[in-house]
């Protein structure tokens, strides 16, 4: 599944809820805005928490000595920051317990 599927699904859902003029263009803008807002917040180091789903945040990793698994050579990994999604309890249980 990709973005177009989620756009179509959103359009369907909102129209079914009675907003007939919620067209595909508006659905696309909305999905893009949701994604961009999460990206914006994380880039600023803010956290976005959606109960029952999970939270998006920026995780900082310290520098460490790693090893190239192929050659066995020691490599120094610089400190880094990466976007992180912490899965909410409800979602975790849903996937695991069905």
């Amino acid at each position: 599944m990709n973005k177009i599927d989620i756009i179509n699904k959103l359009q369907e859902t909102i129209q079914a809820a009675g907003n007939k003029n919620f067209n595909q263009k508006l659905a696309k803008t909305t999905v893009d805005t949701i994604i961009d807002s999460i990206k914006d917040a994380i880039t600023k180091g803010e956290r976005v928490e959606i109960r029952g789903f999970g939270s998006f945040s920026l995780r900082k990793y310290k520098a460490y000595k790693g090893r190239n698994p192929k050659s066995g050579e020691v490599v120094y990994v610089e400190p880094k920051k990466l976007p992180y999604f912490k899965v909410g309890k409800e979602l975790k249980d849903m996937i695991w317990k069905g």
Binding site: M1, N2, K3, I6, T30
Partner: peptide, 23 residues
């Protein structure tokens, strides 16, 4: 409504064991 729908779609996809890629 849109955010709830977004979250629900992600949940549904994962429940089915599928992947959802957002470029």
């Amino acid at each position: 409504k849109a955010i709830n729908c977004f979250v629900d779609v992600v949940k549904d996809v994962l429940k089915k064991g599928d992947r959802l890629s957002l470029v």
